[in-house]
Amino acid sequence: MTKPEKLIENGIRLDGRKPDELRPIKIKVGVLNRADGSCYFEFGGNKVIAAVYGPREVHPRHMQKSTSAVVRYRYNMASFSVEERKRPGPDRRSIEVSKVSREALEPVIFQEYFPRSAIDIFVEVLQADAGTRTAGINAASIALADAGIPMKSLVSACAAGKIDDTVVLDLNKDEDNYGQADMPIAMTPEGNITLLQMDGHLTRDEFGEAFELAKNGCKAIYELQRAALMEKYASQMEGDVIE
C-alpha cells in the first residue's frame, strides 16, 4: 500500500474512528488447558494469546533469586502473523519488546512472595496490526490474575500518536506506517506509568495531549479487562447450571 493522501479527514480516520477512539477489543480468559493462566486478546487486527506458568521452579538454577521470583516474558510473533513471512524465533525487536513488557508488569507482581521461583509469561502474536506489544501486556496482565498470581493491580496498555499533525489514540497499521509518531504506554489503574516508548516527532504540547489520550485509553481498557475476568466467573456459573 502506498501512503494515502489523508489519514484523517474532518476528524474521521480512514477506519472510521474519531481521534480518541480505540479499535474494537475482544477478550477471553482461561483459553488454554495446560497453562496456569491464559488470555486471548483481540485489539483491532491484532490477535494475541498470553499464557502464564508459575510460580514454578527455575531452570537453569543460576537464574534463581534468593529473595524473590524471577519474572520472564517471552514475546514471540508467529511467522504468519505479518505480511512478509517472519523467520521463526527471537530477533532484536522481539527481545526488546519482551524486556520492556516484562518491566511493565513487574512493578505490580508481588515477586517477594515466591523466592527462588519463576513466573513465566508467554505472549504469542498470531496476527499483527500495530500495537502488538500493548495487546500482549493487556493479555498477560489478565493471564497473571487468572493464574492466581498475587498482584497490586492489573496493568493496561495502549498507544497514542500523531497522524497528519493530529494527535490520535491507538494507531492502526497504516497510521503507524505513514503517521508521524507512535507512543505506547502501560499504566496501573491508579495512574503509575510502567511502560513508555515513543518514536517519531511530537512537540512538547503534542506529547502532553498524546499522553493524556493514551492514559484515557488505558482506563477504558482496564474496565474491559476487569469485565472479562468477571465474565469468566459468570460463565463458570452458567456451565454448572447446564450440567
Partner: peptide, 21 residues
C-alpha cells in the same frame, strides 16, 4: 485485594484466590 478471587468481608478481610499454586 492482591488476587483474583472471592473476598469475604465478615470478621477478617480475606480473599480466596480462584487459582494458584
Amino acid at each position: 485485594s492482591s488476587v483474583f478471587g472471592i473476598a469475604s468481608l465478615k470478621d477478617r478481610i480475606r480473599v480466596v484466590p480462584l487459582s494458584g499454586k
